[in-house]
Amino acid sequence: MRKSLSSKSKLVIGCLSSIIPIALLILIGLDVNSNILELIPETGHSKQSEKAIKHFTQNISSNSLFLIKSKKENEAFKAATAFENKLKISNLFKEIHGKKSDSEFKQWYELYFPHRFHLLTPESRALLSNNEKEKFLQSRVKKLYSTQSSLYSSNLEKDPLMLFGDFIQELPSPGSFSIKNGFIFKKSKEHTLILISALFKDSVFSNSVQVKFRSVLNSFAQETLT
């Protein structure tokens, strides 16, 4: 009798010991492993690939791009401002890059301007390397007479060789996007597109982040549609 009771209690304790951790996991929330390589045997994947995927999930995956699209330009800007505010109050993001303020442009300028003497264009570099000082100086004077002289004349006191203006001119083209009302935007024949980028605080693979973000999107959709 004692023997059968003790085997039953062993069975119950055995079952409980396996149920409790599962129940606890459900209560505190399941942490889903998003790295598929960790789910296959050690011999089946390379450490390098795993490292690369980890790096990707840690860094890149937190970056998000949002495109606001509307047929009417003013509505696109209104929606972009409202959406940016929504993202800000959601407390889900570390950084949000929507409307650029003048101070942000100034920060960008202040970051690069002190290094203007190292930002020579290939053309200026070639002229200076070949000791063609006269030709180089003449090319500077021509800039002041050009139709784009405003790009250069504002900083003439601080940058008499106009190296910074050259650097800005040589920057890769942003494609068809430009800046309007502080937002990065593109206008096609039919639509206006506005780009907002944001960096999530936590992993986007986290279920709780996804649920919270879905509710942000739903509430934004409801507010804008009504």
């Binding site: 002041l144 007479y145 002289s149 004349s153 003439l156 006191e157």
Partner: peptide, 13 residues
């Protein structure tokens, strides 16, 4: 005649 603020003389072209 382009008068650039920081230059004494205008640029004539």
């Amino acid at each position: 005649a382009k008068k650039i603020k920081v230059l004494k003389r205008p640029l004539l072209s």
